[in-house]
Design a binder for these strands. Sequence first.
DNA 1: TTGTATGCAAAGCGTTTGCAGTGAT
DNA 2: ATCACTGCAAACGCTTTGCATACAA
Lengths: 133, 133
Amino acid sequence: MERNTRQRTAIRDALESAARPLLPQEVLDRAKLAAPGVSLATVYRNLKSLVEDGLARPVNLPGESTRFERTHAHHHHHFQCRSCQSVFDVHECPGELVHLAPPGFVVQDHDLTLYGYCAPCAQSQGLQAKLLT
Amino acid sequence: MERNTRQRTAIRDALESAARPLLPQEVLDRAKLAAPGVSLATVYRNLKSLVEDGLARPVNLPGESTRFERTHAHHHHHFQCRSCQSVFDVHECPGELVHLAPPGFVVQDHDLTLYGYCAPCAQSQGLQAKLLT
DNA sequence: TTGTATGCAAAGCGTTTGCAGTGAT
DNA sequence: ATCACTGCAAACGCTTTGCATACAA
């Protein structure tokens, strides 16, 4: 049976209260506020069990280490800012991706990551919303 | 100045003759055929310089370690088979992704990865080309 | 009391780097 | 003869795991 420890609660709350996917180290930093002394190993173990229970989801961005977010009901993607490195949710999806693969290939799923500048960074750098692909 | 060593040639040829992005270990395996004794460290060093020279490109799939492919002229994406784990090029692109991001965000670039079964694996497992997103 | 969860430290794994020796120019 | 390149092994950063202890049930 699963037990409700101070650490587990702190870790779950850290994900719950975050508006964006967190790195394990970020989860640790936040969990320490409620459970001082919690270890990184415990964070990893709990993230793993949260994922297994469907309460959290791993977010793998190309070339980055795995982040975690609380499970959202809907299909979505991510946007990473090239200035502040933060990751944001993107709720739209282009869809119709099945036809992109070569004939005979079975497409089940996809990951899409957008790169550029988030609104705050774009503004502070005086960037226009250039329309590149 | 850069020197043409047996190892460098073998590594470049390994990428050149591959039809898909290779893991560093796969590059090593192939390079060893032409340059026995070549080390993994040398593979990494040469991959790095090939990327700097624009002759190779890193391919980062979510949750996978970095693969490398010879530089293609055109924009493309990748498909990973859930059965054999191989990665294939997908030459189509949905485009029009700029509009997916929230207002104020500047979208410069994107990565798209499709998942499913490649034609050989789908056939050997009797899968139909189901039309899931 | 029982046994899961935890903290610590060590081990893994992929990648990078320091160093002395090798070899292309 | 230079000095960039190489192989080896150690170092690294992130993640996982073994083990004895702590604590929820």
